[in-house]
């Protein structure tokens, strides 16, 4: 049986850990294999997240490029070789929140600017060797917005962190807002929520692991059933279709 090979380029450690855990939730662990790689300069460094079952049907290579503005460059540099080496799809993921974005807006989400970033990226991809095999995604504004969309996730981190408790202190109720349109800097919002129970958050590996390991398939499916986090839905569909394993 041939193995479907997919490369996923992400901007940082949080995205890598989240996707690795998501893949484990979405697919039968005995059928997928994945490698996690970090790009340092133009060199690749293996990072210890290997998962190698004996007879996989899908191979995911997750590449952390360690810089939001280098995700597309890293794809551009490697896409031809990856396709020559049998990869069937490349997926890119980065945050919309970036230095370049902040330069263009005044501390708030601007749909017009979002669209310009998306169009500019799509335009670059259209000049690549097989644009139809490359899909690029922005988490809006950051990947933490997707976690904020999973309303009951924080109760699993600390049982006090239900929507009511958070709302009392922070003046918003997670069940009634779309984090994608509400929070300009979702990582900061996440930090404020966790600070309510004295848990620090500054994107350290252990902290990201601790949160993302608690994301279950139910959290994902619940989020997909809502109108929230449209950017997550697109990314999720792209991930599923990459293996030809569309779910309803």
């Amino acid at each position: 049986m041939s193995v479907n090979k997919i490369a996923i380029f992400v901007e940082g450690q949080s995205e890598l850990v989240f996707i690795r855990n998501l893949l484990r939730q979405l697919f039968d662990n005995s059928s997928i294999v994945f490698d996690c790689i970090k790009l340092h300069g133009s060199q690749t460094v293996d990072i210890p997240y290997k998962h190698c079952p004996p007879e996989p049907t899908a191979y995911f290579q997750i590449i952390n490029v360690e810089n939001d503005s280098k995700v597309l460059s890293a794809i551009k540099e490697r896409e031809q070789k990856l396709f020559q080496n049998g990869f069937s799809k490349i997926i890119g993921l980065r945050d919309m929140y970036s230095k370049e974005y902040r330069k263009r807006v005044e501390g708030c989400i601007n749909d017009e600017v979002n669209n310009k970033f998306v169009e500019s990226h799509d335009n670059v991809i259209s000049f690549m060797s097989s644009p139809e095999k490359i899909s690029f995604h922005f988490s809006i504004m950051e990947i933490e917005a997707w976690w904020l969309g999973m309303e009951t996730l924080f109760e699993k981190v600390d049982s006090r962190l239900n929507s009511q408790f958070i709302g009392e202190y922070l003046d918003f109720f997670l069940e009634s807002i779309d984090p994608e349109t509400s929070f300009f800097h979702p990582a900061e919002t996440l930090k404020q929520i966790l600070a309510l129970v004295n848990i620090p958050y500054d994107k350290k590996l252990g902290q990201v692991e601790s949160i993302t390991s608690k994301i279950s398939i139910e959290d994902v499916e619940t989020l997909l059933r809502t109108e929230k986090c449209a950017s997550f839905k697109k990314f999720y569909e792209s991930l599923l279709s990459s293996t030809g394993d569309e779910k309803e």
Partner: peptide, 12 residues
Amino acid sequence: DNFEMTGLSNFD
């Protein structure tokens, strides 16, 4: 400014 939005690195 337009180039910055392409998400490519400066070298590109």
